[in-house]
Measured scan of single mutants.
Amino acid sequence: KAVLCADHGEKLQLFCQEDGKVICWLCERSQEHRGHHTFLVE
């Protein structure tokens, strides 16, 4: 069962290295995470 983003309802499948947390693809494109290094997690 996928864990969903509290903000967007999308699957949490990216790890943001700068923030040390898992985010969704919409979070990654938001101003908050712009320019951060993210990695796909399974």
Score class of each variant (00 low, 15 high):
residue 26 L to V: 10
residue 5 C to P: 01
residue 21 K to H: 08
residue 28 E to G: 07
residue 15 F to M: 11
residue 2 A to Q: 15
residue 21 K to C: 03
residue 14 L to I: 12
residue 4 L to Y: 12
residue 4 L to P: 02
residue 26 L to H: 09
residue 42 E to C: 03
residue 4 L to W: 06
residue 31 Q to R: 07
residue 24 C to R: 00
residue 36 H to C: 03
residue 4 L to E: 08
residue 5 C to D: 00
residue 14 L to H: 14
residue 10 E to C: 07
residue 33 H to K: 15
residue 3 V to Q: 05
residue 27 C to A: 01
residue 40 L to V: 10
residue 1 K to S: 08
residue 23 I to N: 09
residue 1 K to R: 05
residue 7 D to Y: 14
residue 18 E to L: 00
residue 36 H to R: 02
residue 13 Q to K: 14
residue 34 R to Y: 14
residue 24 C to D: 00
residue 36 H to Q: 05
residue 7 D to G: 05
residue 14 L to F: 10
residue 21 K to P: 01
residue 22 V to G: 11
residue 13 Q to Y: 06
residue 13 Q to W: 03
residue 30 S to G: 08
residue 33 H to N: 07
residue 4 L to D: 06
residue 16 C to M: 02
residue 37 H to L: 03
residue 7 D to A: 13
residue 25 W to T: 13
residue 29 R to Q: 07
residue 30 S to T: 08
residue 26 L to D: 10
residue 23 I to H: 06
residue 15 F to Q: 13
residue 20 G to L: 14
residue 24 C to G: 00
residue 8 H to Q: 05
residue 2 A to I: 11
residue 30 S to E: 08
residue 21 K to F: 03
residue 2 A to T: 14
residue 2 A to M: 15
residue 8 H to K: 03
residue 34 R to C: 08
residue 6 A to D: 09
residue 30 S to Q: 12
residue 42 E to D: 13
residue 4 L to V: 12
residue 34 R to M: 10
residue 12 L to F: 09
residue 31 Q to V: 12
residue 40 L to G: 13
residue 11 K to P: 15
residue 23 I to P: 02
residue 24 C to T: 01
residue 35 G to W: 04
residue 5 C to F: 00
residue 2 A to N: 13
residue 28 E to P: 04
residue 36 H to D: 03
residue 11 K to E: 14
residue 6 A to E: 06
residue 34 R to H: 13
residue 4 L to C: 07
residue 27 C to E: 00
residue 17 Q to F: 02
residue 27 C to D: 01
residue 8 H to S: 00
residue 21 K to M: 05
residue 5 C to A: 00
residue 3 V to S: 12
residue 41 V to C: 07
residue 28 E to V: 07
residue 29 R to S: 05
residue 4 L to M: 15
residue 28 E to A: 06
residue 10 E to V: 03
residue 7 D to L: 14
residue 1 K to A: 05
residue 1 K to E: 12
residue 35 G to M: 03
residue 11 K to A: 12
residue 16 C to W: 01
residue 23 I to G: 04
residue 13 Q to H: 10
residue 5 C to T: 00
residue 28 E to S: 08
residue 14 L to M: 13
residue 5 C to H: 01
residue 27 C to I: 00
residue 6 A to W: 03
residue 29 R to A: 04
residue 11 K to T: 09
residue 42 E to R: 15
residue 12 L to E: 09
residue 16 C to G: 05
residue 28 E to D: 09
residue 30 S to P: 01
residue 31 Q to Y: 04
residue 8 H to E: 02
residue 42 E to T: 15
residue 27 C to K: 00
residue 3 V to T: 12
residue 7 D to P: 05
residue 29 R to K: 10
residue 23 I to A: 03
residue 13 Q to A: 12
residue 25 W to G: 11
residue 11 K to S: 14
residue 5 C to E: 02
residue 17 Q to N: 06
residue 24 C to A: 00
residue 7 D to E: 12
residue 31 Q to S: 11
residue 8 H to G: 01
residue 2 A to W: 10
residue 16 C to S: 05
residue 5 C to W: 00
residue 28 E to Q: 08
residue 33 H to S: 05
residue 27 C to T: 00
residue 33 H to L: 05
residue 27 C to L: 01
residue 29 R to P: 03
residue 27 C to F: 00
residue 30 S to W: 01
residue 3 V to K: 12
residue 27 C to S: 00
residue 15 F to P: 06
residue 20 G to S: 04
residue 35 G to P: 04
residue 4 L to G: 07
residue 26 L to P: 07
residue 15 F to C: 12
residue 35 G to R: 07
residue 31 Q to T: 10
residue 12 L to A: 15
residue 31 Q to N: 11
residue 15 F to D: 04
residue 1 K to N: 05
residue 1 K to V: 07
residue 35 G to D: 12
residue 23 I to L: 04
residue 17 Q to A: 09
residue 38 T to G: 07
residue 14 L to E: 07
residue 21 K to V: 13
residue 13 Q to V: 08
residue 7 D to R: 10
residue 18 E to S: 05
residue 7 D to S: 12
residue 11 K to Q: 05
residue 17 Q to K: 15
residue 5 C to K: 01
residue 19 D to G: 01
residue 10 E to A: 07
residue 12 L to V: 10
residue 21 K to E: 12
residue 13 Q to I: 09
residue 8 H to T: 01
residue 19 D to E: 14
residue 2 A to E: 15
residue 31 Q to K: 09
residue 11 K to F: 09
residue 7 D to V: 14
residue 7 D to K: 12
residue 2 A to Y: 08
residue 34 R to F: 13
residue 20 G to P: 04
residue 15 F to T: 05
residue 8 H to I: 01
residue 2 A to H: 07
residue 16 C to D: 06
residue 4 L to F: 14
residue 40 L to C: 07
residue 25 W to L: 11
residue 36 H to N: 02
residue 23 I to M: 08
residue 30 S to H: 06
residue 16 C to R: 04
residue 3 V to C: 13
residue 30 S to A: 11
residue 3 V to W: 04
residue 15 F to N: 03
residue 17 Q to W: 04
residue 4 L to K: 08
residue 9 G to M: 07
residue 9 G to W: 05
residue 36 H to T: 01
residue 22 V to N: 13
residue 20 G to E: 13
residue 25 W to V: 11
residue 9 G to E: 07
residue 9 G to K: 12
residue 37 H to I: 11
residue 30 S to Y: 04
